[in-house]
Amino acid sequence: MNEFVLIFRNDFQPEVKFSPDEMQAIMQQWQNWMGGIAAQNKLASSGNRLGGDGKTVKPGNIVTNGPYAEIKEMISGFIIVTADSIEEASEIAKGCPILNVGGNVEVRNIIPMNN
């Protein structure tokens, strides 16, 4: 089995506001998605959710404020799954609730460490 990281990206849309009920539903979607991966014993790490605080360090020791600007998107978090192939990992990613709110998922293979 190989490990793949699923990186969640979303547009920063301050104008979009969710009601508490909608947020509850979003939370449940995430929990069920993660639970479903874990139930297949394919969740290698529940990864991290990233906050809005960010800084970017560029060559020449230039530090800019804010998360790295990729167009309008920013990384909101990641998890690690185990799968036989990147296709299988992509199938898992298809269920990710971030896709329901306009976000996307990048699936990347992890280079195994020697030690």
Binding site: A93, N104, E106, I111, M113
Partner: peptide
């Protein structure tokens, strides 16, 4: 982790 070149985007 170090990430490899294999990549897919799901949108």
């Amino acid at each position: 982790n170090r990430l490899g070149a294999e990549s897919r985007i799901i949108k």
